[in-house]
Design a binder for these strands. Structure first.
Length: 283
DNA sequence: ACCGGAGCCTGTTAGC
DNA sequence: TGCTAACAGGCTCCGG
């Protein structure tokens, strides 16, 4: 269970929020260098090669795919970052003291008349990964559909569900089935759909599939709205963040009353993941 | 196709 | 009070 001082796990909404926050300070800027006290952040290529290759590259666009951030560089290369458990990205003045967990720093060419800034990758758990590749597909290939894209329709969701026989929550967490949903939003979506996380995916009724499709998109959009309200916090170093607990119905609420019926929320372990649900509302 | 477990990390917490 | 061990969690890899 995340304590009050632990920022929320970056899932799709958090990554989307960071992407939006980074566009203004980063687009058009040029990387001059890269330094790291945790070389394993650089998954491909290795740190030294990445240092040489990124220098002089300019940020042309920033986007997201699932939980990956994608920085399109003017050379055609793509810088791709996955925040995993505890990653954060922020553009801050270089004279601002670095945080203990600021492990990897992207240096930026200074703008005339401005104090120098740099992009800092803070990552307490050190699970984050950075890639610098010519073709983004090299990294993003196996990802499933984007849940918020117009092309992700209920019929497509139903079609993808067809023939699968898995515990439904495991499917939602499978990034090749659906991109961007993590533990928190999976629990939340299943709660609003009234579906138990333990249900086999091939037992869902058409009504439940539709409800789940809707609630996945609803909780992700809610997350983006909520994070968006606290967007500037990402640019500050103190790490304090939005009011997650007020917006969450089941995740981390084991033993506390269901918001709909008052029944205590149950917590189980499912495929190694903490899983929360209302035993009365979710069938 | 699907599941379970180990491993990667470290701050927090439960247990002694 | 102070120590240690367990735990959490996204993802990958391995074995069943």
């Amino acid at each position: 269970m995340p304590g009050q001082h632990t920022p929320p796990m970056p899932e799709l909404p958090e990554v989307e929020t960071i992407v939006r926050a980074l566009r203004a300070p980063l687009i058009g800027r040029t990387f001059t260098g890269l330094q790291s006290d945790w070389p394993r952040h650089c998954a491909l290529p290795p740190l030294e090669e990445m240092q040489q290759r990124i220098a002089g590259q300019q940020v042309a666009a920033i986007s997201r795919r699932g939980k990956f951030l994608i920085f399109e560089l003017s050379s055609g290369d793509a810088l791709i970052i996955h925040l995993r458990m505890s990653g954060h990205l922020a553009v801050v003045p270089t004279d601002q003291p670095r945080h203990r967990h600021d492990h990897t720093i992207f240096q930026l060419a200074p703008l005339p008349g401005e104090v120098p800034h740099e992009l800092r990758f803070r990552d307490q758990r050190k699970f984050g990964r950075i890639y610098l590749v010519g073709d983004p597909n090299e990294i993003l290939d196996g990802l499933g559909p984007e849940p918020l894209d117009d092309s992700f329709t209920l019929p497509e969701f139903e079609a993808n569900l067809r023939g699968r026989k898995r515990v439904i929550k495991s499917l939602l967490l499978d990034q090749s089935f659906l991109a961007g949903v993590g533990n928190i939003y999976a629990d939340e979506a299943l709660y609003y759909a009234g579906v138990r996380p333990t249900r086999k995916s091939d037992t869902l009724t058409p009504e439940e599939m539709a409800a789940l499709y809707d609630s996945i998109r609803r909780v992700l959009n809610m997350g983006i709205e909520r994070e968006g309200a606290s967007i500037d916090l990402y640019l500050k170093p103190d790490g304090s963040k939005g009011d997650m607990q007020n917006a969450v119905a089941v995740y981390g609420r084991a033993g506390r009353p269901c918001l709909k019926c008052g029944t205590p929320i149950e917590r189980i372990t499912l495929n190694g993941r903490g899983t929360h649900f209302c035993p009365a509302c979710q069938k």
